[in-house]
């Protein structure tokens, strides 16, 4: 049996918002160490991985591993009906065909229970190898969101170049071109670690979708290495993360 209580529905809302634009259905795997989710988007261009350790919950109990096949649009509707500061408890039996979500207002004067039908998803899991990234850049998540938004006005593709001097985002389209450069700051809000310089091209539409996770974290980590997918990671406090992997584009 699973019983997991978030002190605030707001966290669950932010997580659902960060997932639902990129995947429509996914399996949430619950074990005694926490919750994990991994899914590719429909086009198999990107992959999203969520991890929440038990420390992120006000209460967490999972006697046996449970896999919950979720329709994220439905889950979004349910969490939307709750207030951000409500507590929410997720409950599922061992071989559950439904997930119970119980919301409780701050002063416990209002409770709302929802049963969500679970899906029987036959989902592949991919093994993500440990990677020594050539470039690791950390910046405010709001800055990254702004850059992705601005780049996508110019072109479908965004070129990311990273050297010891800084990280550069470029887009080149019918309207013209855009270049945004960031360098390491003494304030420490932007850090750039470079073993070897790299230039790769990515679909801006996906980068933009990843920035739906911005409310989850003030910081974002961008990791690049030759001929491997880009990693964009949003930490969730110190007990979890949401990671997006995006396959690079290659010249025809």
């Amino acid at each position: 049996m699973l019983e997991a209580r978030f002190g605030e529905t707001l966290l669950l809302k932010k997580i659902v918002d960060a997932l639902k634009e990129i995947i429509s259905q996914s399996t949430l795997d619950c074990t005694e160490t926490g919750m994990q989710l991994q899914s590719m988007d429909n086009s198999h261009v990107s992959l999203v991985a969520l991890s929440l350790q038990t420390e992120g919950f006000e209460k967490y109990r999972c006697d046996r591993n449970v896999s919950l096949g979720l329709d994220l649009k439905s889950l979004a509707k349910v969490v939307k009906s709750a207030s951000g500061d409500d507590a929410v408890t997720l409950t599922a039996a061992d071989k559950a065909d439904k997930l119970l979500l119980s919301f409780e207002s701050d002063n416990k004067s209002r409770t709302a229970d929802y049963e969500l039908k679970l899906l029987n998803l036959d989902q592949d899991h991919l093994g993500i190898p440990e990677t020594n990234y050539a470039c690791i850049v950390q910046m405010p998540s709001s800055e990254f969101a702004r850059i992705c938004r601005d780049m996508s006005m110019f072109s479908e593709s965004v070129v990311i170049s990273c050297t010891k001097q800084g990280i550069k985002f470029s887009a080149n389209g019918d309207m013209g071109s855009a270049n945004i450069k960031l360098s390491d700051t003494s304030k420490g809000d932007i850090t750039i670690d470079v073993d070897e310089p790299i230039t790769q091209s990515f679909a801006g539409r996906y980068l933009n979708t990843f920035t739906r996770a911005t409310p989850l974290s003030d910081r974002v980590k961008i990791c690049l290495a030759p001929d491997v997918p880009l990693l964009v990671e949003y930490p969730i406090e110190d007990y979890g993360y949401i990671r997006y992997y995006l396959a690079p584009k290659v010249d025809e």
């Binding site: 198999h44 592949d124 899991h125 991919l126 491997v228 584009k249 025809e252």
Partner: peptide
């Protein structure tokens, strides 16, 4: 050309 993500990661 857009590559696929599953070309990089092995199925478990």
């Amino acid at each position: 050309m857009q590559r696929n993500i599953d070309a990089f990661f092995k199925r478990l």
